[in-house]
């Protein structure tokens, strides 16, 4: 690693202020950023740790939405969201490994928008709202592409607000080495329709499979997917699977998510 300082503000306001320094970068749980720093692929002058910002911690329920503070670790979501939003809790319980879940945060995951991250699928399928220090952005407008989001320089994800679906499920087919999803599909059934979001598969990052959404909004059953096919265009081709395979897995995993949804 190159040398840098770490600041640990306790309020969002102080964090935002600290991030105004040249080459300052926010530090969530660090589970992606720290390996990047070790490889000397980033050279911040300063990291602004968000771990001490109390107002970004924890889970709360507001009517039909579940609000998760941006600095909330996966392990907390896995346990505390279980009763209200089991599909989301289950997703959180399978991110990385136990030690990673004790450090990694939802804000970090959402802001990084790794094309194989799990949380973006839940946010997009739930129609979540990404809350930052300056504004609220719909998930549909937030994830712009691989590692790209609508966040501006110095803007922090302070919370994510998830509408709670009637039924949901996340199916992850893991890449055998990293254990990130080779394909992950989150299916969320709301009173007004079904949303399906896919991670791991596309060169454009997380996306909604709208044909499946329409079909499942008609009949919420795996059979509804019969006849649908995902195009392999734009799918990731790598050591672990080509585009055709990923496209195939999207359909398989969607069907399994529908079957398992509760």
């Amino acid at each position: 690693m190159y040398a840098f300082d770490i600041e640990r503000p306790t309020t969002v306001a102080d964090a935002v202020e600290a991030l105004k320094a040249d080459e300052a970068q926010p530090l969530g749980g660090g589970q992606t950023l720290i390996p990047t720093l070790k490889a000397r692929l980033a050279a911040p002058s300063k990291l602004v740790s968000l771990g001490n910002v109390k107002e970004m911690q924890g889970i709360s329920i507001d009517g039909d939405t579940l609000r998760i503070g941006g600095a909330t670790i996966h392990a907390t979501v896995a346990t505390e969201a279980r009763s209200r939003y089991p599909g989301l809790a289950r997703l959180a319980s399978k991110i990385g490994d136990p030690a990673v879940r004790n450090r990694g945060t939802i804000g970090g995951s959402i802001a990084n928008n790794d094309p194989a991250a799990c949380y973006p699928a839940a946010a997009l399928a739930s129609g979540a709202t990404i809350i930052t220090n300056t504004r609220q952005v719909a998930a549909d407008d937030f994830f712009l592409g691989m590692f790209e989001t609508a966040l501006d320089e110095g803007e922090i994800v302070t919370a994510v607000s998830f509408p709670i679906p009637e039924a949901s499920n996340y199916q992850k087919f893991v890449q055998p080495a990293s254990r990130f999803p080779l394909v992950g599909v989150f299916v969320a059934k709301f009173a007004d329709g079904v949303r399906v979001a896919v991670t791991g598969a596309s060169e454009g990052g997380v996306f909604r499979w709208t044909e499946a959404e329409q079909a499942l909004s008609g009949t919420f059953a795996p059979d509804a997917l019969d006849g649908l096919n995902v195009s392999e265009d734009g799918m990731i081709n790598d050591l672990h699977g080509d585009g055709e395979y990923r496209a195939h897995l999207i359909k398989i995993m969607t069907g399994r998510a529908v079957k398992a949804a509760s």
């Binding site: 770490i6 640990r8 530090l27 660090g30 720290i34 390996p35 030690a99 990673v100 004790n102 450090r103």
Partner: peptide, 16 residues
């Protein structure tokens, strides 16, 4: 273990 939870000490800064 940090505060009773398992963490990877290679992926956490000492100041944290």
């Amino acid at each position: 273990h940090v505060d009773g939870k398992s963490v990877k000490s290679c992926t956490m800064f000492a100041v944290e």
